Amino acid sequence: MENKNPAKFSHLLQVQPEDIDMMGHVNNVVYLRWVQEVATAHWNYAAPDNLKSRYLWVVLRHEIDYLRPAFLTDQIQGFTWVGAHQGAKFDRFVTLYRAGSDQLLAQAKTTWCLLDAATMRPKRIDPDILAIL
């Protein structure tokens, strides 16, 4: 799943006290939130305002592998890139590392669907959108 392409988007996250569960590490559901935060940060960074106002994204499927725990003092470096697309859908990959290390904490593959913001119906992913991702 991992892509060593240096062009992938990177986003820094900070573990918060409320992210810690009764076992003393970041709760698994927080990793999923981070996956979505990294994807959203990428769209907000890459898309011009006219595209952000015309389109919305919804998640159709998440697959996530939890590999190592994160702790309160950790910063997390998230990386994302997009994979194959078909019609209104594409796969997005996210890896979450302990910042400043090679320690992969989690990796995810998420299927997203593009929606027309006015109609809330699926919209084929056009080349202008693919070009920015």
Rank of each mutant, 00 (worst) to 15 (best):
D126E: 15
A131F: 04
D116A: 02
D102T: 11
L60N: 10
M22I: 14
F9W: 09
Y55V: 05
Q36V: 10
T111A: 09
W43G: 10
A118W: 06
I76K: 01
D116Y: 02
P17S: 08
L96H: 05
D65K: 13
T80R: 03
I64D: 05
K52C: 07
A47V: 00
I20H: 02
W112N: 11
N5I: 13
A7Q: 13
D91P: 04
Q14M: 14
V30A: 01
A118S: 10
R92N: 03
K123T: 09
L133C: 11
L32R: 13
Q103V: 08
A106L: 08
A99G: 05
I125F: 02
G100L: 09
D65N: 14
A118Q: 14
R92W: 03
L13V: 06
Y31S: 03
V59N: 05
G83K: 15
D102Q: 11
Q86M: 12
R92V: 05
L96P: 04
L60C: 13
K89E: 14
G100N: 11
V30L: 01
P6F: 05
G100R: 06
P69E: 02
K4N: 15
F71L: 05
M22Q: 15
N27D: 14
Y31Q: 03
R33F: 09
R54M: 11
W112D: 05
P122Y: 10
A7W: 11
A47Y: 02
L67Q: 08
V82F: 14
N28C: 12
M23E: 10
K8L: 12
Q77K: 15
Q16R: 13
D126Q: 13
N3F: 10
L72E: 04
A88I: 08
D19S: 03
H62E: 05
V59S: 04
A39D: 08
D102R: 10
M1Y: 12
A108L: 04
T80V: 04
T119K: 13
L51E: 03
C113W: 05
A118L: 11
N5E: 15
P17H: 07
I20Q: 03
M120L: 15
E37F: 08
I125C: 01
P127H: 07
N27P: 06
W112R: 10
D19L: 01
I76P: 00
A47N: 04
N44H: 15
P122L: 09
T110V: 11
N5F: 09
M23S: 10
L114K: 00
D91S: 12
A46M: 12
V15K: 04
R124Q: 12
P17E: 09
A41G: 10
L130T: 02
M22W: 09
G100T: 10
D74C: 01
A47D: 02
P127F: 07
T73A: 05
Y55L: 04
K8W: 14
A106T: 07
V38L: 06
A47S: 03
Y55W: 08
Q103M: 13
D126N: 09
K4F: 15
E18Q: 11
L105K: 03
N50V: 14
N28F: 06
P6R: 05
L51A: 05
K4L: 15
A41E: 10
K8C: 14
R68L: 03
Q36R: 09
